[in-house]
């Protein structure tokens, strides 16, 4: 509202929190947009992402509770900070660059930490954040520090970190990053993956998972 004025800035956060004080269910997507994703994979990813948001928008409770942030890497870019699905700006990701997976994870974890601080400051309850890493390659930067940060976050229950490998992803690296079993996407079934994710988010936003992570079995998109 007041970008072009000299008035005191009203940060969007607290205002939205007062209007919608429902508990939040944060979900961060770390999306590989390196050069190897060019063509059909990136198109499928974009379509899947769009349907993901549409699903969430169509659910009157999830639209108030689920908050999604998008970080793409190749190079690392914060496409969207945490927001409810009605704030979705269709980004149309483009494939470019290499795979700075480590940096993406570090920045993503930072984003989650900041959002949690905002929830705390505004008296908004929240569920344990979910981070989904989706990649089709192997990291081109130093990822060991990121892996340590993931392990640290998992053991302190700060978030739950899931990795999804696409096509030629280096699954052995993913196994070293996550404490959970990484999953392999069947072909380019991004849509099925996002359908599954939105269903999981919807049911998570209705229950109170606490320590439990209520994920339905990854059927329809995963190779396992």
């Amino acid at each position: 509202m007041s970008d072009d004025t000299m008035l005191d800035q009203q940060p969007l956060g607290p205002v939205t929190f007062a209007e919608n004080p429902e508990p939040r269910c944060p979900c961060l997507l770390l999306l590989d947009t390196s050069g190897s994703m060019a063509g059909k994979p990136i198109a499928e990813l974009n379509a899947g992402l769009r349907s993901f948001y549409e699903e969430l928008q169509g659910d009157s409770l999830a639209v108030k509770r689920v908050e999604v942030a998008l970080v793409s890497f190749g190079p690392v870019r914060i496409i969207s900070e945490f927001n409810t699905a009605d704030f979705f700006l269709d980004p149309t990701l483009e494939a470019e660059g290499d795979t700075p997976l480590g940096e993406a994870i570090i920045q993503g974890i930072d984003l989650v930490r900041k959002r949690k601080d905002e929830y705390r400051a505004n008296g908004i309850s929240f569920y344990r954040p979910w981070i989904f890493l989706i990649t089709d390659g192997s990291p081109t930067d130093e990822w060991q520090r990121a892996a340590a940060a993931v392990r640290e976050g998992e053991s302190s229950k700060s978030f739950a970190f899931f990795a999804v490998g696409v096509q030629n992803a280096d699954m052995s690296v993913l196994r070293q990053i996550t404490v959970r079993q990484p999953l392999k996407l069947q072909g380019l079934r991004f849509r099925e993956f996002f359908q599954w994710l939105s269903n999981s988010m919807k049911s998570a936003s209705r229950s109170n998972p606490g320590d439990r992570i209520l994920l339905s079995p990854p059927s329809g998109w995963s190779e396992i």
Binding site: P21, S125, R128, N208
Partner: peptide, 16 residues
């Protein structure tokens, strides 16, 4: 729409 148990918690840990 404020939940009676959602407030600003002074501790450092998560308060689900």
């Amino acid at each position: 729409g404020r939940h009676p148990f959602s407030g600003v918690y002074k501790g450092k840990d998560d308060m689900p």
